[in-house]
Design a protein around this nucleic acid. Structure first.
Lengths: 131, 131
DNA sequence: GTTCGTGCAAAGGTTTTGCACGAGT
DNA sequence: ACTCGTGCAAAACCTTTGCACGAAC
């Protein structure tokens, strides 16, 4: 395995991920980090996002609409996608509920479940207010 | 909105989806339906899968690895992805648990949650046996 | 000096789309 | 007849990768 060397670009990506709740796509990360490193390439962003995901410092989330999203919050938590406006939000089920759910799932299943990720769908409060 | 006309190709796609538990990708659907309709095009498969998804006769599932998968089972249920062998399985949490989970989520959230989809990760029984 | 990360550009894979024609009503 | 679905091919996306150079060790 290759040793991991410091890189300013990776550091900037990590800081951006930590600073936002936007669940940005790779392209969004690219556009933000570009402000600080105008020459950074999209390939570098992808390489670093995948690297961070592999070493457990970020999470990759797949949604049915468009590209994958990345999240710097690695503690187990779930997400909500508004089917009207497309907003993508954190949803803080408490840890106990998540563990409870995994345990419940383990009971109906003869493999071993180590983690889970739930995507909730519905209408966000803004959309409800408008209708 | 356009009226919906019958098509043999769409029917074949529906039947294939109903007959399998493989959670096929669009390409897999294409290859199977091709046996019956050698001239069918991948574009048609995509158009129909998206159509079926829109009218609620199929579900589109996004996973972090590779393309989206489709599922003809539209009743709420969840999925399991083996992190070792990549196997993708149904996981039958009973309805009560799913409803309970959605209700729990609604309590921590000021929008309205209508549905959810959970992807569980872990090791399937085959991989456990081998290790 | 060696190794690893980067920028660039090209390639790879998946999904969508414009068009003319043929199937369904 | 009229409309919608199809096949085909091109395009649009998203993501990965080969390469030569520069940064980190």
């Amino acid at each position: 395995m290759a040793a991991l060397k410091y890189s300013r670009q990776r550091e900037a990506i990590k800081h951006y991920l930590a600073s936002t709740k936007e669940h940005p796509t790779a392209d969004t990360v690219y556009m933000h980090v570009k402000k600080e490193f105008p020459n950074i390439s999209l390939g570098t962003v992808y390489r670093n996002l995948n690297l961070l995901t592999d070493i457990g410092e970020a999470i990759k989330i797949s949604t049915p609409d468009g590209g994958d999203r990345f999240d710097g919050t690695v503690q187990p938590h779930n997400h909500f996608l508004c089917t009207k406006c497309g907003r993508f939000l954190d949803l803080e089920l408490d840890m106990k509920s998540i563990e409870e759910m995994n345990r419940l799932a383990n009971d109906c299943f003869d493999g071993m479940i180590t983690s889970s990720s739930t995507l909730f769908y519905g209408e966000c409060s803004d959309c409800i207010r408008k209708s």
